[in-house]
Design a protein around this nucleic acid. Structure first.
Lengths: 140, 140
DNA sequence: AAACAATAATAACTATACTTACTATTTTAA
DNA sequence: TTAAAATAGTAAGTATAGTTATTATTGTTT
């Protein structure tokens, strides 16, 4: 089997396409937010006051990467960090008003763009694809 | 739809899993090679004397990224660069003896590990997954 | 309580991955 | 044939994505 037809190669190119579709849509809407930053924002809004390790666990990243992502979100004024009272090692993260507004603005665009990520597949095939992906990931 | 069930999120996690499986198998075999470096090596062996832009096109990367990847392959003594006679802008890339030996050593391991990447799926489902991925990518 | 292990975050380091800009060259076109 | 457009590679900058080590703090165990 040639490298180009291997699962790993196909997955890498799908990821490449996925991030490309995301950033294109964001750019078209004049929004400065990466897909990872959106995922982090989503996790922070889902659980206000979550700490960085919690965000990392929620969206399957390591703590070091999430630290950088939250740095950038904080720098943009979208989230705020506070030292946790019950554990001074931890930083509780919450969205700011601006962050919530950004999320509300971006969410419908992100939902819409999902369809483009798997462009070329029928509705049924898109469902199939996601089902298979979820099986693989559950098994991990 | 919640962010975690979106196609983009699933694809990102698959990519994460894929590279993790790759590096785990390489580590187990005591081999220092990333999946991207393997893909580049594969492309260079498939077309000896290919230039860097050719490698980038072959495995769907940008030139800057491939430049760094080939830097590292060269540093490890796996490939060699020469200025092309017909076009002094271009760098022709070829594997060294050591690079060919590395590839011969790694190829069977990489082939074997592909099965692990989609672990949890039946043979039929793995086929289905790859078929759907290829449709999406052809459409891009 | 003191010693120890465990945890949260950060720092430092490596490797992608991409964009824009720049240099050197080559090709195309006026 | 010379000016303009295109191309190959590199540089610089940003953003992941991960590993290992370190610091600060907390929990556990003697």
């Amino acid at each position: 089997m040639h490298a180009k037809s291997m699962a790993g190669h196909l997955i890498r190119r799908l990821q490449q396409r996925s991030t490309h579709v995301f950033s294109k849509h964001m750019q078209a809407a004049g929004i400065d937010l990466t897909s990872v930053q959106f995922a982090a924002l989503d996790a922070i809004i889902a659980e206000p006051g979550i700490d960085q390790a919690g965000v990392a666990a929620a969206i399957a990243y390591d703590r070091a990467t999430i630290g950088g992502v939250i740095d950038r979100l904080e720098h943009k004024g979208l989230v705020a960090r506070t030292v946790a009272k019950h554990d001074r090692r931890a930083r509780e993260v919450r969205v700011t008003e601006q962050g919530q507004a950004m999320f509300d603005n971006v969410l419908p665009i992100v939902r819409e763009l999902q369809d483009d990520v798997l462009d070329g597949l029928s509705v049924d095939e898109k469902h199939q694809f996601k089902r298979l992906a979820q099986i693989v990931l559950q098994n991990a």
